[in-house]
């Protein structure tokens, strides 16, 4: 790996660990392996959002040409958000694409992602289904996102109605996550979810 990339990552790694945000457990980063090619990031869901109290794991891959090209980041923890794919975890964020600047750091990336959780851009969606719900049925979007945070990202508060529907589908032999995806994308309409799953 190029020398600049290693130097930079080492320093940015320390910058994140020592940052005020890390002290407050809002962001964190860990090494995966020992060559600084891949890192595991962590961000806390921002307050007053359906992600409050949740912790999201991120996969960060550092390219050979770092910092002249942006790091490749995606969500490992499943999340219901218009700019993040509910299937693959791929992120749609300008600074991870053409607005990347070599002077940006891992800390700026993690903080920008946290900001994205607080302020979604439904007009520039990564996940069209989520974005549609966000725009057309916002209260349901908030509930769904909150329930995903409960199921996947360690938030204690659940939703008994949603749990019941998921369990009913599971009784029909559907996997838990599959049931969650089907119901979420059908606005929790049981009949439509069944149709989508079994047709």
């Amino acid at each position: 790996m190029a020398n600049i990339a290693i130097q930079r990552i080492k320093r940015e790694f320390k910058e994140v660990i020592k940052s005020d945000e890390a002290q407050k457990c809002a962001i964190n980063v860990e090494l995966v392996g020992d060559d600084y090619r891949e890192l595991r990031g962590e961000i806390a869901g921002p307050p007053d959002t359906p992600y409050e109290g949740a912790t999201f794991q991120l996969e960060i891959k550092v390219p050979e040409t770092y910092p002249f090209n942006p790091p490749k980041v995606k969500f490992v923890t499943k999340i219901w958000h218009p700019n993040i794919s509910s299937v693959t975890g791929a992120i749609c964020l300008d600074i991870l694409k053409d607005q990347w600047a070599a002077a940006m750091t891992l800390r700026t990336v993690l903080l920008s992602l946290q900001a994205l959780l607080a302020a979604a851009e439904p007009d520039d969606p990564q996940d069209a289904v989520v974005a549609k719900q966000f725009k057309e049925n916002h209260p349901l979007f908030l509930e769904t996102a909150q329930y995903w945070s409960h199921v996947h990202a360690g938030v204690p508060k659940g939703n008994s109605e949603f749990s019941k529907k998921v369990r009913r589908l599971m009784d029909m032999g559907v996997g838990e996550h599959q049931a969650l995806v089907a119901l979420s994308s059908c606005n929790w309409d049981m009949d439509r979810a069944i149709e989508q799953l079994f047709s």
Partner: peptide, 24 residues
């Protein structure tokens, strides 16, 4: 660093639109 920045940008097909490396 400037040279490397330009190199990466040109490989991406950029020319007249190459920006400074500073954040934002």
């Amino acid at each position: 660093c400037w040279s490397k920045h330009f190199e990466v940008q040109i490989v991406h097909g950029a020319s007249t639109g190459i920006e400074c490396m500073g954040s934002n």
